[in-house]
Design a protein around this nucleic acid. Structure first.
Length: 945
RNA sequence: GGGCUCGUAGCUCAGUUGGUUAGAGCACUACCUUGACAUGGUAGGGGUCACAGGUUCGAAUCCUGUCGGGCCCACCA
């Protein structure tokens, strides 16, 4: 019945998690056949009526949206923090009796997963092309089935109480259906188009990426200045603007695709050259000099080489001037047949060779060191290439407008608020979303091309000038020869041909993730879950995911269901290594959450993380010790309580069992303290202040409960006064049980383990829920124990005891020596209180006897400690170092005088009296009185030397 | 270039809408293996709240500027 001396996190965690899941506690209450009574039970009906049972919100629901982790992922600290926060919110609401749902799952992580499997194949010297699409996909599924549940298994280790019966995967049948529905719906609404544009291309993954997937990093690179001869001139080229122009570029290899050179139309230096031709070196192609306002005359020479197929700006310029687009690269970033002699070279190899060749021809001017942002593939870190290709896009502006409107109507709220701006800015300047990926693992685009009436994927042949497919000129009717369909079509509706080919590309993984809040609930079917749980309540995620996911989910929710998918968005900090860098495996600075769980337990991990999460979390191993020590403290405190209460009959968690006025002061105090802090914690939690709430709880448990109440209770439970003894046992039990419930969302495992023992202890006739998970959250109960008087009294007691302890240390009196102390207090009230606490002060201050007197003259060797309300003296064999003592007192006197001066200045300032609130004024006056009393005490002491 | 954020004890950070003599954890010093707990207890030392102005009776907190970190966004080659 009692708890083991040491907490065994491993066994306890497995035991309870298995049971919780088996019993269906993770499922929403409305799903379970038996109704669970969340109310604390009481045997006294009359008193019960006065207690708020926390049932008022039973009709409401709480649904949290979890970011689906990547199927290839393993749990890292970011997940751990994210899941800990979500689990706290979930457990909290469940305890409040709210119908609570948390749907878990993973996304298929198209590129990442495909990379993993391709790497595996590479070991057997095979590529996906060797296998073919179908066989390759089989391999990926095989891999997924074998390895894809790692992360969800790890989430369980953390204690995440998600409803695993509803677990989803973005490639599930249902979610795939949702993806098709979304695609086709958007297409029908004219919000999806296919176009020939510059996109971010990863040469290693060989696929297009969205703008968000190309992470820009500042890199020190070169800005190369090159000479382009003006047509008709011969080397040497020495007169800039007459026989040649100088252009600057960071990517010299793209010059192979140059189709113009541009200057600003008003740039007088070059006006005469507009319309003339220059000769593209190495390839000896004549290209025109054009005028375009995009060119910044201030930058470099004011002349830009224009490569429409390899740079988004040049692409736009190319459109304005009807320039040819010459793609000089193959999908794996080698120079293609348009690159003449450089064909077959890798882009960086070609760069070197080109610079070398230019140098030989006297066309290389110089290289400047240049810091610029270079895009990198977020999955493999390869430098992405702006690349011209035909891709599918979602037209974002109409979607973004809805999201912005919803936000203005107050339908979405960010915590903390500053992220609102980030969100809105992104939406305001949003660009179209490239959703097609040239990989195989994912949702294949539900578009079919008729082999008869459309050649080569339909539109490509008709698009000689891609400008006819500008993003905001989307045809209202489907492209001819293109079939966009929710189901696999059998024949072409135009010509009846059965020779149909599905678009080989798949959709961006986020195109399935952005549907998550409703696709997981069954959409597009009109399911019961969807009706009941949509829209959801909260989303908890990290800032880096706002664009990828949060904003897009909001847009999707509004577009497909007409409602925001969640109202509150909680953005927590990023987890970083102590060095400030992002934690990542490749940097070797990561701390594996599972190792921490093994070593210290999941509860310690969770508590530490949450306490640190007020801002970005900078982690080092030692930081987990705080949580570990705290869990140990809780364990031991509960162990003590269990030992003390023995076989107490009728131990109950019913607040109605106590009559405030009849309790001892310490009990009144701890009950008051708990009530006060519980309200505070409730307040903090309601505004997502989890870190602050965890800190409050930490101090409540450690400082108030363990350091003071338990110490005060020790003499009381050993008292011969049976009534006092039993009362104290009951309060210990009551407070401790309540503490466990407050702690449960933060440290689920240990609290359950202890609580079950408590439950056994409580015995009949009190009935308890089966698990602490189903017990009531104490935050909403009626306030009935607030007790100013007790708080004041215990404050005095704490001063008295602390003062005595201080005296002992300062006077070097052995802790075991019993002493007699004299308390001098002017006020009868204070004397009365100290007298009441005689027993407690004696025990905690290790006294043999104590006296409370009105006045006292120090005689002989005595040490003293002063408080505004009283002085305390103890006899002393001999003062160790009188000079030290004198100095100390002098310092104290000085400090106090300064203090008094400060308050005087304040209080006696007429403006203060006129303008400050009365409360503050009163407080200041009290302070002044206290300070003056203190000063007198110090001066008296000093005088006695 | 734009935006956000931070600068408080040796270290990591709390500090609500301005109002106790600015707090905690770790580290440090001294004492304590006391029957819940040494992953502990008691007591103590340690801070011009980055800097300079301003608003105010009153500023760590609000405003302006400066310096110094970090992050995000951005198509200037």
């Amino acid at each position: 019945m009692d708890l083991d001396k040491q907490y065994n996190s491993k066994d306890v965690e497995t035991k309870w998690y298995t049971l919780w899941e088996a019993k269906g506690y993770f499922r929403p209450a409305s799903d379970r056949s038996q109704t669970i009574d969340h109310r604390p039970q009481t045997t006294d009906k009359k008193k019960a009526a006065s207690v708020d049972r926390g049932l008022s919100t039973v009709d409401s629901k709480y649904v949290i949206v979890i970011p689906p982790p990547n199927v290839t992922g393993i749990l890292h600290m970011g997940h751990a923090l994210n899941s800990a926060i979500q689990d706290i919110l979930t457990r909290l609401n469940r305890m409040k009796g709210v119908d609570t749902l948390w749907v878990p799952g993973v996304d298929h992580a198209g590129i990442a997963t495909q990379n993993v499997v391709e790497k595996k194949l590479a070991k057997e010297k095979k590529t996906r092309w060797d296998l073919g699409r179908e066989a390759f996909l089989k391999e990926v599924w095989k891999w997924k089935n074998e390895n894809g549940s790692t992360i969800t298994r790890q989430l369980r280790r953390l204690g995440s109480s998600c409803d695993w019966t509803r677990e989803r995967f973005t490639m599930d049948e249902g979610l795939s259906k949702a993806v098709r529905e979304a695609f086709v719906t958007l297409y029908e609404r004219g919000l999806i188009y296919r176009g020939h544009y510059i996109i971010n291309w990863c040469p290693r993954c060989q696929t297009a990426l969205s703008d968000e997937e190309a992470a820009h990093k500042d890199m020190q690179g070169g800005l190369y200045h090159l000479k382009y001869p003006i047509a008709g001139h011969k080397p040497p080229y020495e007169k800039m603007g007459e026989d040649h122009l100088v252009v600057a570029t960071t990517r010299p290899e793209t010059m192979l695709g140059d189709t113009a050179v541009a200057v600003h139309p008003d740039d007088l230096r070059y006006k005469h050259l507009i319309g003339k031709k220059v000769v593209l070196p190495l390839l000896n192609r004549e290209i025109p000099v054009i005028a375009d306002a995009f060119v910044d005359p201030e930058f470099g020479t004011g002349i830009v080489k224009v490569t429409p197929a390899h740079d988004p700006n040049d692409f736009a310029m190319g459109h304005r001037h009807n320039l040819e687009q010459i793609n000089v690269m193959t999908p794996d970033a080698k120079i293609n047949e348009h690159g003449g002699p450089y064909k077959g070279m890798d882009r960086f190899e070609a760069r070197k060779k080109i610079l070398q060749d230019l140098e030989e021809q006297g066309l290389f001017v110089r290289r400047d060191s240049h810091l610029h942002a270079v895009g990198h593939c977020y999955r493999c870190e390869t430098v992405v290439e702006p690349y011209l290709s035909k891709q599918w896009f979602v037209k974002m502006q109409p979607l973004a407008e809805k999201a912005l409107k919803a936000h203005d109507e107050g339908k979405t709220v960010f915590y903390p608020d500053r992220w609102t701006k980030v969100y809105k800015n992104w939406l305001t300047g949003i660009r179209d979303w490239c959703i097609s990926r040239q990989i195989w693992w994912g949702h294949q685009i539900p578009v079919w091309y008729c082999e008869k009436c459309s050649t080569e994927y339909g539109v490509r042949s008709t698009a000689k000038n891609p400008s006819t497919e500008a993003p905001y000129a989307v045809p209202r009717t489907p492209y001819e020869g293109i079939i966009v369909s929710r189901t696999t079509p059998e024949k072409c509706p135009q010509c009846g041909s059965k020779e149909l080919t599905q678009d080989p590309d798949v959709l961006d993984t986020w195109f399935s993730s952005w549907l998550w809040p409703f696709s997981t609930l069954g959409w597009p079917e009109k399911t019961e879950d969807l009706r009941k749980f949509y829209p959801t309540s909260d989303l908890v995620t990290a800032p880096e995911i706002i664009f990828f996911w949060v904003a897009r989910m909001i847009m999707a929710g509004l577009e497909f269901l007409g409602e925001v998918p969640f109202t509150r968005v909680h953005i927590h900090g990023t987890v970083r290594a102590a060095s400030g860098l992002k934690m990542s495996k490749s940097l070797g600075n990561s701390i594996d959450p599972l190792e921490v769980i093994e070593e210290m337990g999941a509860d310690a991990l969770r508590y530490s993380l949450v306490m640190l999460s007020a801002q970005d979390v900078y982690l080092s191993r030692e930081k987990f010790e705080t949580g570990r020590n705290f869990t140990t403290k809780v364990w031991n405190a509960c162990r003590f309580v269990l030992m003390q209460i023995g076989d107490l009959q009728g131990a109950s968690h019913d607040p109605a069992q106590f009559e405030k006025d009849k309790l001892s002061l310490p009990s009144r105090w701890i009950l008051s303290r708990f009530e006060e802090k519980t309200a505070e914690i409730e307040r903090l939690l309601s505004q997502f202040g989890l870190a602050q709430a965890a800190t409050e709880l930490y101090h409540l448990v450690w400082d108030d409960f363990c350091d003071w109440y338990i110490e005060l209770a020790k003499p009381m439970v050993q008292s011969e006064n049976v009534a006092l003894k039993v009362e104290t046992q009951k309060v210990l039990f009551f407070v401790c049980e309540r503490m466990l419930r407050l702690l449960h969302p933060f440290m689920p495992f240990m609290t359950e383990e202890i609580w079950q023992t408590f439950k056994v202890k409580a015995g009949s006739p009190v009935t308890w829920p089966e698990s602490i998970m189903l017990a009531a959250w104490p935050g909403r109960e009626k306030q009935s124990f607030r007790d100013e008087e007790a708080q004041k009294a215990i404050g005095l007691l704490q001063d008295a005891v602390t003062g005595l302890r201080d005296l002992r240390v300062r006077s070097q009196i052995a802790p075991t020596d019993k002493l007699t102390a004299i308390f001098v207090c002017k006020e009868a009230k204070t004397r009365e209180i100290l007298n009441t606490f005689e027993r407690e002060v004696k025990v905690l201050g290790r006294l043999e006897a104590l006296q409370c007197v009105l006045e006292f003259k120090k005689t002989g060797a005595m040490a003293a400690h002063s408080y505004p309300a009283f002085d305390v003296f103890i006899p002393l064999e001999g003062i160790r170092d009188p000079e030290e003592e004198k100095k100390r007192l002098q310092k104290k006197i000085q400090e106090t005088e300064q203090w008094i001066k400060n308050i005087r200045n304040k209080v006696e300032n007429p403006s203060f009296a006129a303008k400050a609130p009365k409360e503050i004024l009163e407080k200041e006056k009290e302070k002044l009185a206290d300070a003056e009393k203190l000063l007198v005490s110090y001066q008296n002491q000093f005088a006695s030397f």
